[in-house]
Design a protein around this nucleic acid. Sequence first.
DNA 1: TTTATTTACGAAACCGGTTTCGAATTGAAG
DNA 2: CTTCAATTCGAAACCGGTTTCGTAAATAAA
Lengths: 337, 337
Amino acid sequence: MNKLTMKMLAKELRLSVATVSKAITDSHEISNKTKLRVNELVQKLNYVPNHYASSLGRRNSKTIGVIIPEVVDSFFAQAINGIESIAQEKGYSVLIYLTHESFEKERTILKDFESGRVDGVLMSVSRETTKGDHINGLMDKGIPLIFFDRVFDGIETTKIITNDFESAYMATKHLAKHGCKKILFLSFSNILSISCNRLNGYKKALLECNMEVTDKNILNFNNDPKSDYLLLKKKLKSAKRVDGILASVEKLSFPIYQACEELKLTIPGDVQVISFSNLDTASFLNPPLTTIAQPAFEIGRTAASILMKALGRKAFELQKEDIVIPSTLVLRRSTYI
Amino acid sequence: MNKLTMKMLAKELRLSVATVSKAITDSHEISNKTKLRVNELVQKLNYVPNHYASSLGRRNSKTIGVIIPEVVDSFFAQAINGIESIAQEKGYSVLIYLTHESFEKERTILKDFESGRVDGVLMSVSRETTKGDHINGLMDKGIPLIFFDRVFDGIETTKIITNDFESAYMATKHLAKHGCKKILFLSFSNILSISCNRLNGYKKALLECNMEVTDKNILNFNNDPKSDYLLLKKKLKSAKRVDGILASVEKLSFPIYQACEELKLTIPGDVQVISFSNLDTASFLNPPLTTIAQPAFEIGRTAASILMKALGRKAFELQKEDIVIPSTLVLRRSTYI
DNA sequence: TTTATTTACGAAACCGGTTTCGAATTGAAG
DNA sequence: CTTCAATTCGAAACCGGTTTCGTAAATAAA
């Protein structure tokens, strides 16, 4: 219980601490014979070098930080898996932080990262983030940061994204082609670039189909969930109600189903629905939900891979580069086919 | 970009490093005047002390480790939120590791924690874990560890669990009461204590209802998903097919819905279904799924709270104590009411 | 005014490793 | 048998803070 240190090992082995350290890290300076001796004792005594001392000495920690808004969300949960799969492969640990969509928390976290506790950062910004000072602050300290999915436009670095614009465009087109005359766009932020892109894809499709683009058909779910829900219900109750909905975020699909049930509206009969979503249960919903499925796992993997690559080099230089991994429109029975 | 150290601050301020350190940590030994001077420069230069140096010096890291099998699972995702909420409140960081149900990974992770990089650990064991040496190894080094949900029986420490036995018992009783004559229990491990408890609850209910307890009605999903699925389908196709299913884990409900759809079996007409599950979408499934909802968030919070409390004391001593937070049976239309 | 406490700060040891660099030993080349 | 290079190891500085302890100055008590 009284900690075992390298010094104690050294004494026991009649070696210097330096030699033990090098033996453990498998340095070429040490003979196989001594490496064997050292490792034997390490095994026997179950010695594990102090992580903080190592990190301090090496000036890196083999740890990356991941900042996401939520974890109860299929996209982020799957992305974490992707990130983890690469990190584990490369011997990195993953420090996960949740902002819960709060800019303040986001800033606090980034600040904490300035302490050098992570070698690099993967980040999806909160929906409140309009300024990038905190991000620049971190990058100025030489810590590489890569955005995935929710990027912040003002900052030049690698960004792993999906084709939000095209996806929303395709989805909207699909709705229009199958009879929708009045399509509602459900958003949860008018700040986030992904939201804007999705919105613009939606708008472009409407224009091409000669449908009216109006703010009345764009609902922003970023207030109180209850009042947001009532707003949606109102929209669905009105005489000139919408007959199609595109939800720009997974969790927005729940209130839609809820409201339709309460109002006895049938999907897709009365309203056709498409949602950006990675829900495993999409095909078992009533009715099965047509989704735009994002390559979450792949996005995570890619982001992590590129970060690892950067960390591997002495002088990393993250390209200002957008890597786009396309999403897939999965047709199910919440829309006509 | 060339790092700012406390030494540089000290020189600039014509103070010693010791004084600066104490000023920053708001020690009583330092006058307000100098604290002000120091903090002013800290702000101006945007100085953040090196995390590893601090942790090394203080011999603690204000970080806790969380080990879970998966993150793409509503229970664990929600539990993380619970843990995070407490950790953030107490100024702790959360290091999350996934075992993907692999015992080897679990051991590797625990080993890593022996490096002292976390002050304490919250853990849900993998479904392969039958030995506790790795856990004892960690605890022997004086690092407190608390189990939540999936506990390992052989180890004496605090365990935050839910009433698995009673929940399964109630659920099975409910099925029996509403006409089920032959109830299938879907498991994913015969090792995990939670699985055993749930199974035993199921068995007790059967006995009380004078129904046969037979291995033929207990399906263990821990091989290849495809073959498992085929097994389930066979069970549902046979002449004397089951008319009720209790799934002991959230993700096991997917293949049930899938199989019933393929076999044109109606739920609950042909088969009634209950699943342990925290799915947000449970009520929108076709049909809405009757679930045993676990207090995931609360379990996470409680586990984290107790750990924090232990860490706060100089000589923590985790009671061998089981804290039980009950689950709720939420009746929906996958069963008769 | 003298003595006893506080208060405020710095020197130096320390946390537990890593890394640099020099020296001793060994092996190869001439 | 030298000479030179490669191998192997240790002393000591270092990573960047924290903490102990001693001391000088300031304040309070006697």
